[in-house]
Computed example of a mutant assay.
Amino acid sequence: MNNIRTLTRRTALVAATVTAALVLAACGGDSDGDRAHEGPHGSASANADSAGTAGDQAGENAHNAQDVTFAQGMVPHHRQALEMARLAADRSASAEVEDLAARIEKAQDPEITTMTGWLTAWGEEVPGPTASTGSMPGMDHSAHSGMPGMMDGQDMAELEKATGRTFDTKFLTMMVEHHEGAVEMAGDEKAKGRYAPAKALADDVVTAQNAEIREMDKLLGED
């Protein structure tokens, strides 16, 4: 009888021990599983990933005051170049000058649209038109005459009145100065700007307009 009781107690003890071991193992497994789940997919990791993505987007789209200054200055600067270029079609005596003027218009008109879009997206003021020869008579060019290379109202009036070779000489001389101003403004953007598309456009301006300056110097016989 004593042997039976002893055997029964031993059996119960073994069963309890096995059960406890299984319970502990199950708890340990769940804990490890939870930690493994939280690593790649848990809230802390997900928040970090989200913050990183937001930070990257902000970095790519960030702009600074120099970017705004560049766009607000270059829009009217380009507009005046277009006004000058559009005079060439019925005033120039040179096919080379007419071709150059057409290329200037083709390049700078889309850039105005691009920069206007940036300013609108940033919630910044878009400069209104200054004078537009023929289409908006009486408007004043002096509003932006302080920018590098910008012509004043008298300069534009004299160019509008000129024809033939006189026009060509005035146009080339004025456009060289105008381009040099644009290159200076673009250099400031490259050095101090933050918005990558604006810096890229500035680089394009420097490359294209320096090449056109060399071309105009040759037409003027100065190179």
Rank of each mutant, 00 (worst) to 15 (best):
D155M: 05
G123K: 13
E158H: 03
R103E: 14
T133K: 00
D49P: 14
A102I: 10
E125T: 12
A46Q: 11
A93T: 05
P137A: 07
H77V: 08
M147P: 06
F171H: 00
A107L: 09
D32V: 05
T116V: 14
G164A: 13
V97I: 11
D30N: 07
G153R: 03
V68T: 05
E124P: 00
G153N: 14
A143Y: 09
E98W: 00
H63K: 05
P129D: 13
R79V: 08
G153T: 12
T133R: 06
Q108G: 11
A121E: 13
D140I: 08
W118I: 02
I104A: 13
T69F: 10
D99L: 03
G153Y: 11
D152H: 04
M115L: 10
G153P: 14
A157F: 00
E160D: 05
S135L: 11
Q66F: 03
I104S: 06
A65T: 09
R35Q: 04
E160N: 04
G123W: 13
P110Q: 01
K170L: 06
S132G: 08
V68H: 01
A85Q: 01
D140H: 09
G33I: 11
H77F: 09
E38S: 13
S31W: 14
G52R: 06
S135W: 11
D140V: 07
A101I: 02
A107H: 12
E96N: 04
D155H: 09
A162M: 15
P129G: 05
M115R: 11
P148G: 02
M151F: 12
M150F: 14
A54R: 11
T133E: 00
D155P: 00
Q80L: 06
S45G: 01
D140L: 08
Q72C: 03
T130A: 11
A102L: 13
R91V: 00
Q108I: 08
A157C: 00
A65E: 15
P129M: 09
E83C: 02
E38N: 14
S94M: 06
I104Q: 01
W118S: 04
E98M: 00
M84P: 00
P148V: 05
T114C: 01
S43Q: 12
G123H: 13
A107S: 15
D168K: 02
A101T: 08
P127Y: 13
A101N: 04
Q80V: 05
A71L: 12
G146M: 07
F167Q: 00
P129F: 07
H41S: 07
G39V: 15
G29M: 12
A85L: 02
P127M: 12
S92M: 04
A36Q: 09
S135Y: 02
D34N: 13
E111A: 10
A58D: 15
W118G: 02
Q154M: 05
M115H: 06
D56A: 12
L87K: 06
V68Q: 06
H41K: 06
T69R: 03
Q57S: 09
N61W: 12
